[in-house]
Design a binder for these strands. Structure first.
Lengths: 225, 225
DNA sequence: TCAATAAGAAAACGGCGTTCTCTTATTGAC
DNA sequence: GTCAATAAGAGAACGCCGTTTTCTTATTGA
C-alpha cells in the first residue's frame, strides 16, 4: 500500500475507509461491520484505521452525519410551503424509508455511537448533527406553520426516537424472522415503512392537538419547567 | 460450590443467576453486565452459567419478562375504569419511570436480546411477552374505552418503541454526559421522565384524534392493508 | 545525501461470549 | 454397602473483537 502523506491523500484514505464501511454495512449489516471487515474491504491493514479515526464509533458517526445531511438536503428541497398533516407525515416517513442506513445509525446513536470517543470529537459531531436537526425542524415549520418552532424541534427529536425504536424492531435477526413467519406472531411482522408512517402521522396529529390545547408559548408540558 | 441436582436446587441456581444479573445491572449498567461479572457476583464459575441458560441473551430476556409482568401487574391493579387521556398518559409514564431496568431491557430487546437464542426458547419467551403486552392493551382499553382494541394494541407497541428510543437517549454514557453539561447542548439533556411523559401524551392524543377521524373498524392507516 | 518523519504492517493485548475437557460429588440399582 | 452411571463444578482453551504497541521503511525537506 502506497503511503498517504499529503493532506489530500489522507483525505482520500478517510473517504476510502468510510466508503468501505458503508459497503460492509450494506452487505453484512451492523453485526458484520467489524474493523477487520472494514479494513479488508478497504484493502488496508486494521491497525492503520486508527491513523484516520479514533475509534469504530467515530467512523459510524461520520457516516451518520453524512446520511443525515443528505436526507435533510432532500427534505429542504421538497418542502417549500404549507402542507396537510397527512402529507407532511408521508414526506417525513418517506425520507427515512429511503435511507435505511440512516435509520440503522440513528438507532445506534445513543446506545453505542456516542461512546468511546473523545469529548472534543463528539462535540464537533454533535454540533453538526444539531445543525441538521434544526434544518429538519425548519422544514417542518414550513410545512406545518401551526406548529411553534420549539414544538417542531421537539417533534424532530421525538421522530429520531421513534426511528431508533422502530427500526431494530422492524429488522429482526434471523432467529426472530423465523418466528415472525408463524401466524401466531404475524402481527409483529409489520414493515418499517408501515410502522414509521403510522407513527409519524399519530405523532403529528398528537402534536397539533396538544399545541391547540396549549394557547401559551409553551410547546409541551415539560418544556416550561 | 455444592452441586445442584434436584429440580428445586436447579431452580434456585437459575434464580441465583438472575438475581446476580439484576444486581450487576443495577450496580454497573449493561456495559458492566458481562458473564464474568454475573458469575463472580453469583459466586459461581462462568462456564456453569451455560448449564442453566443458553446464552447471555436468554438471561436478560427472562429478566425482561419478569419486569414486564410486574409492571403489568401494577397497571392492572390501578386501572379500574375510564380515565382522561392526560391521566392515562401519566399512569403509563409512571409505570415505565418506576422500572428503569424494564426500560433498559426494552431498549435492548430488538437490537440484541432477540439474537443468539434457539427458536424454541425465543418462541416461548415471545409468547409470554405478548401475553403481558395484551394485558397492558386491555388496561389501556379500560382506561380509554374510546380506543378500539386493535388501536390499543398498536398503542402499546408504539409505546415500547418510544421507550426503546427514548431510554438510551436519556441515559447517555459519561462522554455525552460531559457535553450535556455545556449550555450549548442543554436542550438535549431532558430527563427520561419528562420525555416519556410528553411522548405518551402526544401519542395518546394523536391516537384518539386519528381514531375519531377513522369511523371504520380500521385502527390505523396500514392495519387494513 | 541523509537524518527526521510518519504511514504501513504485524504482532500483541486484554476482554468478551462460548465451548471443551476433566474431575468428582451425588445418585439409584444391586 | 458397593459401584458404575450421571451430571454439576471447575478451569483451560477457543475465536473474535477493538485497541495499542512495536518495528520497518517509504518519503520528505534541508
Amino acid at each position: 500500500m502506497i503511503r498517504a502523506r499529503s493532506p489530500e491523500a489522507k483525505a482520500k484514505r478517510r473517504a476510502q475507509i468510510l466508503r468501505a464501511t458503508a459497503d460492509v454495512l450494506a452487505a453484512d449489516g451492523l453485526e458484520g461491520c467489524s474493523l477487520n471487515a472494514i479494513a479488508s474491504r478497504a484493502g488496508i491493514v486494521k491497525s492503520n484505521i486508527y491513523r484516520y479515526f479514533e475509534s469504530r464509533e467515530e467512523i459510524l458517526l461520520r457516516l451518520l452525519l453524512d446520511d443525515l445531511t443528505g436526507t435533510c438536503d432532500g427534505l429542504s428541497m421538497i418542502v417549500s410551503g404549507p402542507m396537510s398533516v397527512k402529507e407532511t407525515a408521508q414526506l417525513l416517513a418517506n425520507g427515512f424509508v429511503a435511507s435505511p442506513r440512516l435509520c440503522l445509525l440513528i438507532s445506534q446513536l445513543a446506545p453505542t455511537l456516542e461512546h468511546n470517543i473523545r469529548t472534543d470529537t463528539l462535540r464537533e459531531i454533535k454540533r453538526a448533527l444539531l445543525v441538521q436537526s434544526n434544518r429538519a425542524s425548519a422544514a417542518l415549520t414550513t410545512a406545518l406553520p401551526a406548529l411553534p418552532h420549539a414544538t417542531a424541534q421537539q417533534a424532530i427529536h421525538l421522530l429520531f426516537s421513534l426511528v431508533a425504536g422502530l427500526w431494530p424492531m422492524s429488522n429482526p435477526g434471523p432467529e426472530l424472522a423465523n418466528l415472525l413467519a408463524e401466524p401466531e406472531f404475524a402481527p409483529l411482522g409489520q414493515s418499517f415503512a408501515d410502522r414509521i408512517h403510522d407513527a409519524i402521522l399519530i405523532l403529528l396529529s398528537g402534536l397539533t392537538t396538544v399545541a391547540k390545547q396549549d394557547p401559551h408559548n409553551r410547546a409541551l408540558p415539560h418544556s416550561g419547567h
